[in-house]
Design a protein around this nucleic acid. Structure first.
Length: 325
DNA sequence: AACTCAAACAACCGCAAAAAT
DNA sequence: AATTTTTGCGGTTGTTTGAGT
C-alpha cells in the first residue's frame, strides 16, 4: 500500500502512502502524551487489546494502530518490568544472545516483563558500544570469547558476591541446562559457561554430587563458590550497581589463577585464552583488559526484587525444555 | 547558568508472515 | 483461492536526560 504516485492522472487508482494517509487523517506521531496513554489504557481496560487499527479509531486516538500496539506492549502494559537490567538479566541476555543472536523477541520470552525493544536497546547501547571501544566487531570470535570467558564469568562472580552479602532472600542466575532432582528440591545449574552450582531449598550451593574432577573439566569455576550456601540481598545495589568489571583486571593470569581455572589442561578456557592472546587480528587480551578496566560496562541497577527466584528458574527450565534446547 | 555530548530510552520504518475477508 | 489487513520482528532514528565543562 505504498506507492508514491507520480503519474496520478487517474486519482482513484493512486494508492496513498502511509505518511500522506496519516496527514489526511491528522494522525499524531512522536512521544505519547499522558492523555493519550490514559485513553489507550482505559480503552483496553474495557474492550481488550487487539485489532489495533480499529482500536485506535474507536478509542479516538489519532495514532496508527501500530503506534498504539507498540505503546501498549512496550510501555503501558501492566506487566512491563521497568528499571535497570539486573546482573542476572544481563547474564541471561548475553547467554541467550550467544545462542540465538539478534532474536530479541525470543530472548525476551525468557526475561519476563522485559520487552524485545528494551533488550535490543540494552544490547546496542552497552554491548555493541563496548565492542566498539575494544575496536572489534561485535560478531567477531574475539569479542564473543571475551564475553563468554571474561565478562560472563565476571557477572557470575558479581551475582555470587551480591548473594554472599545478603542474608535474606535467594537469587540465582538463570540456568540454560538444568536438571531437577525432585527428591531433594534441588536443581543443578550448568550453563554453557559451565558454572556449576545447585539450588537446594532456595539456596545456591556447589553440587555435592559432582566430583571435583568433573568440576575441573569445566571451563570456568567461580572462585567464590564453595560448599556453603549463599543468600542474596533484598537490595544489593551497592554490589550490583557498579561495573560488571568493578574490580579491574590488571593481568589476565591473575584473573585466571584467582578463579581456580588454571591447571585445567586441555579445555575450552585454555583455548579461548590462546585465542584472546593471539595478535592475529590486532587484538590482545592485555589491551582488552586495559580498556575493560577503564570503561563503564553493564551498569546495573539493583537486584532488590528477588526476581530470579527458584520459581522463576523452574519456569525457565520448563520453557527451555519445551523449546528443545 | 548555559552549553555540549553521549547514554539511555522511546518510537518509527520496512518487511514478511499470519490472519481475516 | 486470492486479496487485503493486521500483527510481529528487527533495524534504525529521534528524543530525553544527565554528567561534565
Amino acid at each position: 500500500m505504498e506507492v508514491k504516485g507520480s503519474s496520478n492522472s487517474n486519482k482513484s487508482a493512486v494508492l496513498i502512502s502511509q505518511s500522506e494517509e496519516e496527514e489526511m487523517m491528522d494522525l499524531r506521531r512522536g512521544p505519547w502524551t499522558v492523555d493519550e496513554d490514559l485513553t489507550l489504557i482505559n480503552y483496553i481496560a474495557t474492550h481488550g487489546e487487539g485489532r489495533w487499527n480499529s482500536l485506535a479509531r474507536s478509542a479516538g486516538l489519532k495514532r496508527t494502530g501500530k503506534s498504539c500496539r507498540l505503546r501498549w506492549l512496550n510501555y503501558l502494559r501492566p506487566d512491563v518490568r521497568r528499571g535497570n537490567i539486573t546482573l542476572e538479566e544481563q547474564l541471561l541476555i548475553l547467554e541467550l544472545h550467544t545462542r540465538w543472536g539478534n532474536r530479541w523477541s525470543k530472548i525476551a520470552q525468557y526475561l519476563p516483563g522485559r520487552t524485545d525493544n528494551e533488550i535490543k536497546n540494552y544490547w546496542r547501547t552497552r554491548v555493541q558500544k563496548h565492542a566498539k571501544q575494544l575496536k572489534c566487531d561485535v560478531n567477531s570470535k574475539q569479542f564473543k570469547d571475551a564475553m563468554r570467558y571474561l565478562w560472563m564469568p565476571r557477572l557470575v562472580e558479581r551475582i555470587q558476591a551480591a548473594a554472599a552479602a545478603s542474608t535474606t532472600t535467594t537469587t540465582v542466575v538463570a540456568p540454560t541446562n538444568t536438571s531437577i532432582n525432585n527428591n531433594n528440591n534441588a536443581f543443578t545449574y550448568n550453563n554453557n559457561l559451565n558454572n556449576n552450582f545447585e539450588v537446594h531449598n532456595g539456596k545456591m550451593m556447589l553440587p555435592t554430587s559432582t566430583p571435583p574432577s568433573v568440576m575441573a573439566n569445566n571451563d570456568f569455576v567461580g572462585s567464590q563458590i564453595t560448599t556453603q550456601s549463599y543468600n542474596t540481598p533484598e537490595n544489593s545495589s551497592t554490589a550490583a550497581s557498579s561495573d560488571s568489571f568493578g574490580t579491574p583486571i590488571s593481568d589476565f593470569n591473575d584473573y585466571y589463577n584467582s578463579n581456580n581455572i588454571n591447571n585445567l589442561g586441555d579445555n575450552n578456557f585454555y583455548q579461548a585464552s590462546q585465542t584472546l592472546f593471539s595478535h592475529e587480528q590486532g587484538m590482545d587480551l592485555q589491551s582488552m583488559m586495559m580498556v575493560e578496566s577503564n570503561t563503564p560496562w553493564m551498569q546495573s541497577g539493583d537486584t532488590s526484587d528477588n526476581f530470579w527466584n527458584v520459581e522463576n528458574m523452574l519456569f525457565l527450565e520448563q520453557q527451555l525444555m519445551n523449546d528443545n534446547m
